[in-house]
């Protein structure tokens, strides 16, 4: 069996964390979903510091924009400015599809952008699409994999 895909969810809303977990459980691709509850914790995880010593480098980061302490945009900026992390695909999760939010995210080199749907079944669809897109269609840069190997 193929190695499960490592996903890091950086999200402060417990409801959304649960929803995302449910949605990924539903998916056809095996995955390990790790969760960080704010931006600072997310960066600790990515840099494998403190309690996250020995954490795996994720194949995909799901990043919420509205978070306390370090918000999503700042986290994204840090990731994209760091050579060791910049190649990890980042999908932005947001409640609004306002152009402002979208433009901001893309300016910071987010790889994709998902509006959190009101409808759960729609959310399942979106998650399925993300999975397909990132793990079936798009070739993920290898260094993320190399780290795992």
């Amino acid at each position: 069996m193929a190695k499960p895909i490592e996903i890091l969810l950086i999200e402060d809303n417990e409801g959304d964390i649960l929803l995302t977990k449910k949605a990924f459980e539903d998916g056809k691709i095996r995955n390990n979903l790790s969760v960080c509850r704010d931006g600072e914790e997310g960066l600790e995880f990515l840099y494998k510091r403190g309690q996250f010593e020995g954490a795996v480098t994720p194949d995909l980061i799901l990043l919420d924009l509205n978070m306390p302490k370090l918000n999503g945009q700042e986290v994204l900026e840090r990731i994209k400015n760091d050579e060791t992390l910049s190649s990890i695909p980042v999908v932005i999760l947001t409640t609004s599809d306002s152009e402002e939010d979208i433009m901001k995210s893309y300016k910071l080199h987010a790889n994709s952008y998902i509006k959190k749907p009101v409808d759960f079944f729609q959310f399942l669809e979106v998650v399925k699409e993300v999975q397909n897109y990132w793990f079936s269609i798009v070739r993920i840069p290898n260094n993320a994999m190399v780290g795992v190997d």
Partner: peptide, 17 residues
């Protein structure tokens, strides 16, 4: 609008689950 969406999503999503 942003903040109203959040609880709404929780209501509908979990009802659906």
């Amino acid at each position: 609008s942003h903040d109203l969406q959040e609880p709404l999503r929780m209501v509908s999503n979990f009802l659906q689950i």
